[in-house]
Design a protein around this nucleic acid. Structure first.
Lengths: 358, 358
DNA sequence: CTGAAAGCGCTTACAG
DNA sequence: CTGAAAGCGCTTACAG
């Protein structure tokens, strides 16, 4: 059997109350310095650790935070979540909390589980992650059940008091527009996602407002392409843009989409003998990428690997601790990363030559 | 306050013993069908869930599995771990267990934490993940402390009785060699990692043994390149190979490395006007990739996204449940994925033409 | 069919 | 300085 408090007390011929008091450094516990020494040493020697279950029962708290989310399909969200658990668990561990992970296939299962952990007092707080469609009802349930929680996403309108974190998607697109405008480009195009989700709208919003601010007018409606993260749909749009007369077509691209948009852009440019870069005849691009992004031919700046763990670092321990202790904090947190030069294979300079297609 | 057993009992004017017995469907508990009904309904109505802490204290088990590992630097391991927590948590949840995640920067911290969760009875079993250098002492500690555990990795020699899972790295390289040999290639080269780790050695071992089996002799010592996952070092080796007379140089590549090896291989081939594929003048390749891999010019087969969650699916619930219940199972599990065609941008066929380098 | 009692391992007043 | 006692919320014999 593992060592209990009683074992330590018996070992020293002391009462459990004294041993407990000393070990927990409780004030108003009087013991000689020598006794304290003996207690601490015996506990160490016997590898005594208080039973987590007994502690939880007594204190009414479990020193545990639950990370609950609905599983999404596909690798994209895997990448987005990669590193998140690392960061969360690390920070929580530092504050003495364990991270319990539970994910489910359906929203119903998630809600059922939230109800369950609330009723069984299985954790002190909850972290919700995922799409707003899912997390909103989840947060509402926890609010009703009076469980402290932190939610990833953009709920500032519907629930301005919720503790929430997310990227500053608007700000990211503004930075991209500013970068391209500073380079002297005036005809910008936008490549985004077609999904009806908070961050997608926020990216688009940021692009539009920055465009108006820099150029005094809305973007050209023809130069908005919103497609799934695959080559084919992006290709059709980009080729159309590039078929316009040179004086008319976009020379710079703001990308609020995935790696496929970048790859397709480079491929299409290559077909007309052009590349991304900073030369007089080069096109330019700036925007979001997934992890592990490498340009093939040219150069560009990007928010690389929208590293979700940066978000997690932002969340904890400060914010999460505040939640756990019921302190009142500024609820809405937004994280704005920086544009950095993307790695490139630089195939052209590398001596790649192709005489024609096979 | 949350609903306690006593609240349900009081609500119905019954004893807690009876309510507990009925709710847990304990045999030898006699209650009329009507009483049972009332108890179940009241529990539901009051949202009663037994206190996790009290249950744990009484039963001596927490219905919790700890997933403990040392954090590694860099994105590669992030990718490798991506999806793992999803899969583990999902399967465990199905069996009624929660997954508690704890990771640390140093091995000392990990060992300290393992000692702690063992002493405080914080979980019923542990999953160890990481490099063998780290997991071996971790497993030895848990063995000493009599905590059931499952470890990722190759400990079949040092600890053949440990419950362990990993990819069948030898088998993967054998499949790659067979694929290339079946295509008619006879001069193979190997691109691998330089690290002194179990899986690296296993990949190399698989390559060598398959080569001997197919060709009756060891691989040519010149055609072994083992480099970090970057372009430059791989490039030097590959260019050297391609500078040999055609009758002498390798025409097929077994890749036991990361995406950089693939990218570099395609780039180098392009410089001599060649590509990966199945034509008479094409070179061929087969092997491992990271997630999100796309060929630029040619075609090849690969173990795509050595999806670690496949490993997790393999581990649980069967294996893990067996561990939790102390059943004796076959301890060593190895997973052998299949070679599948890699996605390609197929730039050449797409009409990309380059007249020369800039 | 039903209820009082002990006990899981700990903490916390409280009386000596 | 020290120890007996109650209680956290539950389960499990055991006596009625």
């Amino acid at each position: 059997m593992r060592t209990r408090l009683k074992d330590v007390a018996d070992h020293l011929n002391l009462s459990t109350a004294l041993v407990s008091g000393v070990l927990n450094k409780r004030p108003n516990v009087w013991a000689s310095e020598e006794t304290r020494q003996r207690i601490v040493e015996a506990a160490e020697k016997l590898n005594y650790q208080p039973s987590a279950a007994a502690q939880a029962l007594i204190k009414g708290k479990t020193d545990t935070v639950a990370f609950v989310y609905r599983r999404l399909e596909g690798f994209n969200y895997r990448l987005a979540y990669s590193g998140l658990v690392d960061a969360l668990s690390d920070d929580l561990q530092t504050s003495g909390y364990d991270l319990v992970v539970a994910n489910f296939a359906t929203q119903d299962d998630v809600l059922r589980h939230l109800q369950k952990i609330a009723s069984s007092r299985a954790c002190d707080a909850v972290i919700l992650w995922g799409r707003e469609d899912d997390t909103e009802p989840q947060g509402e349930l926890l609010e009703k059940l009076r469980v402290p929680f932190l939610v990833k996403g953009r709920h500032e309108r519907s629930h301005p008091t919720w503790n929430q974190i997310d990227f500053d998607h608007e700000g990211m697109m503004e930075r991209a527009v500013d970068h391209l405008a500073d380079l002297g480009h005036t005809r910008l195009a936008y490549l985004g996602f077609p999904h009806d989700e908070g961050y997608v709208h926020a990216l688009r919003r940021g692009y539009f407002s920055a465009h108006r601010r820099r150029f005094g007018h809305d973007p050209d409606g023809r130069f908005i392409g919103e497609h799934e993260d695959h080559v084919a749909p992006n290709e059709q749009t980009i080729l159309e843009w590039l078929r316009l007369p040179e004086s008319d077509r976009p020379t710079a691209f703001v990308i609020g989409a995935g790696n496929s948009a970048w790859q397709t852009l480079e491929t299409c440019l290559a077909q007309i003998g052009r590349r991304l870069g900073y030369g007089a005849s080069d096109y330019a691009a700036a925007g979001i990428t997934s992890l592990f992004f490498t340009l093939m031919f040219g150069e560009a700046v990007a928010f690389q690997g929208i590293e979700i763990d940066n978000l997690a670092r932002l969340a904890s321990p400060g914010l999460l601790n505040a939640i756990l202790r019921g302190e009142h904090t500024q609820p809405v947190h937004r994280f704005l990363p920086s544009l950095t030069p993307a790695p490139t294979l630089d195939l052209l300079r590398h001596g790649v030559k192709f005489g024609g297609s096979q």
